[in-house]
């Protein structure tokens, strides 16, 4: 790896590292997991040899990569029964008391949810994005996001009832 590439890594990390960490913490709910995942996201970005400067939106690109990576972690650990205690401090809307139970439930549902539905649920329910923003990130129509969320909710209701 050249000096220039190492400098690029440092610049990308300084500009967006905190955002990636914040997303990891929100999805994973645990600081040590979030730190490890942040490192893995940047390693993945570096090894993909992708030139981030060619991206129209580096923020959206990193949102997508981080979401996919952290969702995989949640699902893999959940299946192995290794999910750690959720942290409530990183709620997006400062309504920790009312939202903490919902957040806990959502994270547990993500483990077994359909991957596409889980991704839509993260963007809309966890991040608080509009369906239009989620659609743009996922590269699908807003209607598709709505359908994914409807199916996720229906599945979640069955899951809880069971």
């Amino acid at each position: 790896m050249t000096r220039h590439e190492l400098d690029q890594i440092a610049v990308l990390f300084r500009q967006h590292g905190r955002m990636v960490y914040r997303r990891c913490l929100r999805i994973l709910g645990n600081p040590s997991d979030a730190e490890e995942a942040t490192q893995e996201v940047f390693i993945r970005v570096i090894r993909s040899k992708t030139d981030s400067s060619q991206r129209e939106s580096v923020v959206q690109w990193l949102y997508r990569i981080t979401t996919n990576h952290c969702l995989n972690i949640v699902r893999n650990r959940g299946r192995r029964g290794e999910l750690k205690a959720d942290r409530e401090a990183e709620l997006p809307r400062q309504r920790a008391e009312t939202e903490a139970p919902k957040l806990l439930l959502l994270r547990r549902l993500l483990v077994e949810a359909d991957p596409q539905q889980a991704q839509a649920a993260i963007y809309v329910h966890l991040d608080g994005l509009s369906q239009r923003e989620a659609a743009e990130l996922m590269g699908v129509s807003r209607r598709t996001v709505g359908n994914l969320l409807e199916r996720f909710t229906a599945w979640a209701r069955e899951r809880v009832d069971a």
Binding site: E5, L6, F13, Y21, S32, Q39, F42, I43, I46
Partner: peptide, 18 residues
């Protein structure tokens, strides 16, 4: 962010990348 040392984190990333 209290729980994160960004210098250590960046150093880890660069070490892994190298």
């Amino acid at each position: 962010i209290d729980e994160v040392d960004p210098r250590r984190l960046l150093a880890s990333i660069r070490r892994e990348a190298e």
